[in-house]
Write a protein that binds this DNA or RNA. Structure first.
Lengths: 109, 109
DNA sequence: TATATTAATCGCAATATTGCGATATAAAGA
DNA sequence: TCTTTATATCGCAATATTGCGATTAATATA
């Protein structure tokens, strides 16, 4: 096995899980925080700042890009990455709904 | 390799990534949604409702429990699971800070 | 044009995840 | 006590992830 049975879940559940997966790594969290701070884009600066090899950073960037969380444009020799506003807003909304649906009043266990 | 270099990231980054990881599966999203709806606890009901084997559900529950997102108490023959309010609030806060730190004004790429 | 510089990709090894059948464990009821 | 019911755990196979060195591709600059 080793692969998720996506067909038995709703599109929303799969989508949210996919987005969470993209965020489920400290390096990717760090990369996003870095982008969020220098509102403007970055690129190979990350290789120097995080203690990971160039190939590794590039792969993490690819995963974030594939998930639609960031977008990149070629800028001369380097590549400029930044937040994809559409996905970010979707993430905020979906997670907001999900997290805020817990009303802690009725204690149970 | 195959293991994350946690030592080069901050505790906060590792913690958030760990929590995201626990949410990074549609089955676990579904389980949490189920718990959120029936505010009160559940247990093996999930096995019937989701299309996964009992062993698989039990494993997902364990992961959520290990991450501190849910808690379980033995209730006779069955086990009652519910949200761990402490972790849930932490999650809301940490994610809130993270997600809301994006101000889409300055477009870049 | 030759050479840096930057980033993506390939290929590998180590480990993690997913899913499940089979088996344990533990409490409830006959 | 014996049996049923409900969960947890073990062990396996298939696949995914993480990280990196080495290589490739593409643009700048000398």
């Amino acid at each position: 096995m080793g692969l998720t049975k996506t067909e038995i879940f709703t599109d929303e559940q799969n989508q949210l899980a996919q987005l969470m997966k993209a965020l489920a790594h400290p390096a990717r969290i760090a990369i996003l925080q870095r982008i969020l701070i220098s509102n403007t884009c970055i690129c190979g600066d990350l290789v120097g700042e995080l203690g990971l090899a160039q190939a590794t950073i590039s792969q993490h960037l690819k995963e974030l890009k594939t998930a639609g969380i960031i977008q990149g444009t070629i800028e001369g020799v380097s590549v400029c990455y930044c937040i994809n506003p559409v996905t970010w807003k979707l993430l905020e909304k979906q997670l907001g709904v999900f997290l805020s649906s817990y009303k802690g009043e009725v204690s149970c266990c």
